[in-house]
Amino acid sequence: MDLTVSTILVAFAGVLLICFMKGAFGGGFSIVGIPLLSIVMDPVTAGGLLAPLFIAMDLFALLYWKPSTWSKPDLVRLLPGLVTGIGIGYLLFRFLDHRAISIVMAATTLIFVSLWLVAGAEAMIRPRSTPKAITAGLASGITTMVAHSGGPPLAMYLLPLGLSKEIYAGTTSLFFTVGNATKAVPWLLLVKPTADVWTLMAICLLAIPAGVWLGWRFHGALDQRQIYRVCYGLLVVTALKLLWDGVSGYLA
């Protein structure tokens, strides 16, 4: 990666978009900003750049998503699987077929959204389930470690619970705060960022306050139904991105 003006501008815009998503939805849709970063750097370098920045983004987002917005019963069920999944993802990082994982996650997400469209929001409401929560946390941990795409498994567990928009966003925010803090060191060990990458990180830190604040204001402007519709729409975008990553990887 060359530290040019264009690299700085594109990376800054990508981080700003990711921060906006964290402010608006608490996290989980960070992958939508990664295509911007891939314009000026390879995915592995982008992962090394984002790993420490995610921690700063999450800590700033928690200024808005306070403990009163966390669904503690769900977090108790989700977090052990998340940490375990990150550990598995780290151990298997060099051996996993990232393309296949992306395709499977994309297909699962699209099926989930299709069921919501066919059945309707009310029919998709489900009670809490410890096995489902553990599975969602584990899947999220693995996919966030190998592809920064841990949002879909978590959303597929949380959205059918019918949580309020604030509780959904706050729970997601804390979930990824724990996940991003856990995976930061493994990612840095895998990537070993250069001096230019560290410099770019420092510059991109400036995007965090404005991005999170703008996202939080956007969240406040939407009602419960609108937030859920946007979340399902973003799941489609995320799934299509993962599908493209997987399929294009095999065709390359």
Rank of each mutant, 00 (worst) to 15 (best):
167 I>V: 14
120 G>Y: 00
159 L>N: 08
43 P>K: 08
214 L>D: 01
193 P>V: 11
138 L>G: 01
55 I>C: 06
75 L>S: 04
120 G>Q: 01
110 L>Y: 02
137 G>P: 10
221 A>K: 15
188 L>F: 04
94 R>I: 03
141 G>I: 04
181 A>N: 11
224 Q>A: 14
34 I>D: 08
85 G>Q: 04
26 G>K: 11
232 Y>W: 09
243 L>F: 10
239 A>Y: 09
91 L>N: 10
225 R>Q: 15
158 L>V: 05
160 P>H: 06
251 L>H: 05
152 P>F: 00
112 F>H: 05
252 A>I: 09
38 S>A: 13
65 W>A: 04
247 V>K: 10
37 L>Q: 00
20 F>E: 05
132 K>D: 12
16 L>C: 12
135 T>Q: 07
31 I>G: 01
104 V>P: 03
104 V>I: 15
125 I>M: 11
118 V>H: 12
211 G>R: 02
109 T>R: 13
47 G>L: 14
35 P>Y: 04
186 P>W: 13
216 W>N: 15
154 L>R: 07
237 V>P: 05
63 L>W: 11
139 A>S: 15
138 L>Y: 04
216 W>Q: 15
68 S>N: 14
190 L>E: 01
244 W>K: 11
91 L>A: 12
187 W>M: 15
213 W>I: 03
190 L>K: 09
31 I>N: 01
141 G>F: 03
2 D>N: 14
124 M>G: 14
12 F>S: 07
18 I>C: 03
166 E>G: 08
49 L>E: 05
37 L>W: 02
163 L>S: 08
95 F>C: 06
60 F>M: 13
125 I>S: 08
192 K>E: 11
143 T>Y: 01
34 I>E: 08
252 A>L: 11
120 G>M: 05
25 F>E: 01
199 T>G: 12
120 G>N: 03
135 T>H: 04
210 A>Q: 03
175 F>R: 04
90 Y>C: 00
86 I>A: 06
58 D>P: 05
135 T>W: 09
223 D>P: 08
86 I>K: 01
236 V>C: 13
3 L>P: 02
158 L>E: 05
132 K>A: 14
171 T>Q: 04
153 P>R: 00
119 A>G: 13
102 S>M: 04
84 T>A: 15
173 S>W: 08
81 G>Q: 05
158 L>N: 06
221 A>H: 15
207 A>Y: 00
165 K>I: 03
203 I>N: 00
148 H>N: 13
182 T>F: 08
234 L>G: 04
247 V>G: 07
24 A>L: 05
83 V>F: 06
21 M>F: 14
159 L>V: 14
93 F>H: 14
28 G>N: 02
105 M>W: 02
251 L>F: 06
45 T>F: 03
92 L>I: 13
42 D>G: 14
204 C>M: 00
123 A>D: 10
12 F>E: 07
5 V>A: 14
242 L>S: 12
195 A>C: 02
83 V>A: 07
134 I>H: 01
91 L>W: 12
216 W>R: 15
126 R>F: 01
148 H>I: 13
156 M>S: 07
103 I>R: 08
124 M>F: 10
249 G>S: 00
124 M>Q: 15
153 P>I: 00
11 A>P: 02
169 A>F: 01
78 L>F: 03
29 F>N: 08
116 W>P: 03
151 G>D: 05
